[in-house]
Design a binder for these strands. Structure first.
Length: 208
DNA sequence: TGAATGATGCGCT
DNA sequence: GCGCATCATTCAT
């Protein structure tokens, strides 16, 4: 049996793929290490009409991977110190991707613990920046094939979990879109209050 | 327990 | 220059 997800899995509408990703396994192999985890939280960033999508202002050197064929890794550097991993979706020419925000560690936990100072194992991957740090993913892996030998997704033996939706986290525009999907039963879901941002917006308005 | 803030570098206007 | 799909720490209550 083949458990590995093929390119056709990613060659579909992004919002159709998102709920199916929850519960899937992500695997990253290098010459001397193996990491795997169960995906519990993702967000959709779809096309140039989505104001929160990096592709909203057209293709640039940074976001060009999103415009390419599906099933590739789009990894970008943010806030001066973090990387975030996305799965590129939809046909070649359509800029869309799914941000991996949270996962439960399976393999490589010892190495993850060394990279992260998390007190509990469920804190190793509960955030997009933390996921990349613990897995060791950086912009060097940008454009890597998600259906290759080094990095891929696979089916889980477990039944699919109940899935909840919410607005996306950490963005200013496009908050009306309910494009965050997560497994509410998992502790590895990033818990971020969006009240900070509301207050910041109020402050900004007052300043104007 | 929740809100504010500093770290830190790159992409884009 | 400014803002950013973040996180850990500090500060206030």
């Amino acid at each position: 049996m083949t458990r590995k997800l093929s390119r056709s899995f990613f060659d579909r509408p992004t919002l159709e793929i998102c709920p199916e990703l929850i519960g899937k396994i992500i695997v990253f192999k290098t010459h001397d290490s193996l990491f795997s985890a169960r995906i519990v939280e993702v967000e959709a960033y779809v096309g140039q009409a989505d104001p929160a999508c990096h592709a909203a202002r057209g293709m640039t050197e940074r976001n060009q991977i999103m415009f390419g064929p599906p099933g590739m890794a789009y990894i970008y550097f943010i806030y001066g110190m973090y990387n975030c991993l996305n799965f590129v979706t939809e046909a070649d020419g359509i800029a869309a991707a799914i941000l991996l925000r949270g996962a439960e560690p399976i393999d490589g936990i010892e190495a993850m613990r060394q990279r992260s100072k998390a007190g509990h194992d469920w804190q190793l991957l509960n955030g997009p920046g933390k996921f990349c740090r613990s897995f060791g993913l950086t912009r060097e892996q940008n454009g890597l094939d998600l259906t290759g030998r080094e990095l891929y997704l696979e089916q889980s033996d477990q039944p699919p979990p109940v899935i909840e939706r919410s607005p996306r986290i950490g963005i200013r525009a496009g908050t009306e879109l309910i494009w965050r999907f997560f497994d509410p039963a998992s502790r590895a879901v990033s818990r971020v209050s969006d009240r900070n941002k509301k207050k910041k917006e109020e402050k900004t308005k007052e300043g104007n």
